[in-house]
Amino acid sequence: MKNRNRVEDTYSGPLIQLIDIHKVYYMGTSEIYANNGIDLSINEGEFVAIIGKSGSGKSTIMNIIGALDVPTSGQYILKGKDVSKMNDNELATIRNQMIGFIFQQYNLLPKERLINNVSLPLLYSGIGSAERHERAMAALEKVGIADKYRNFPNQMSGGQQQRGAVARALITNPSLILADEPTGALDSRTSEELLTFLKQLNEEGNTIVLITHDRSVAERANRIVSIQDGKITFDGNVEEYRRQVAG
């Protein structure tokens, strides 16, 4: 697939730079510090797992990395662009062109056929229907369910639906694939298939950030970042992580 994204290809710094990220939620009068000073740098081509228990702040950091939300303070630089001060529409453009989401619940639109679900991001970047169709078929080919292109999501198994979601994430050729508990709704065999596929995508040069609470899933990545109480408590490779957990 040709890279059609409007990004500066000359940029050579880290893909993701999080600098002293704080995120505060206000619940009535009390303040909840979901992220409390997170610094993180991820280079292009990495496969990073962010692990943490529920309430650790990993979802908040995922929302920020995924340009779904902006931090209360701190800077988020994505491929040289400061995302942390962007407005709604600019964030939408970032999500559309630079990020491919894979969700736990697949999040395919139930009333749309698979092909239309997969090509949806292209619709919002204003690409014509012929090209949308062509690129969606190519993406479906890549995840191996091209024959299901006319099916509705409820006519497919969970594994197939998640593959459809992966195809949708890949279709814009994003700078970053962001997977939020991608195996959470899958049985162990299809989970294994999906993780192998993500590994393969990473070996092809895609940058992947995987959010999970599951150690065995996190250990499939090359680098593990552990979050607790809104702070990074560990950042290193899998061996170091195992040693730290054991010790």
Partner: peptide, 13 residues
């Protein structure tokens, strides 16, 4: 939910 999905995929307001 549908609106959320569309927005996450880059739908503007």
């Amino acid at each position: 939910k549908e609106i959320g999905i569309r927005k996450s995929l880059g739908a503007k307001r």
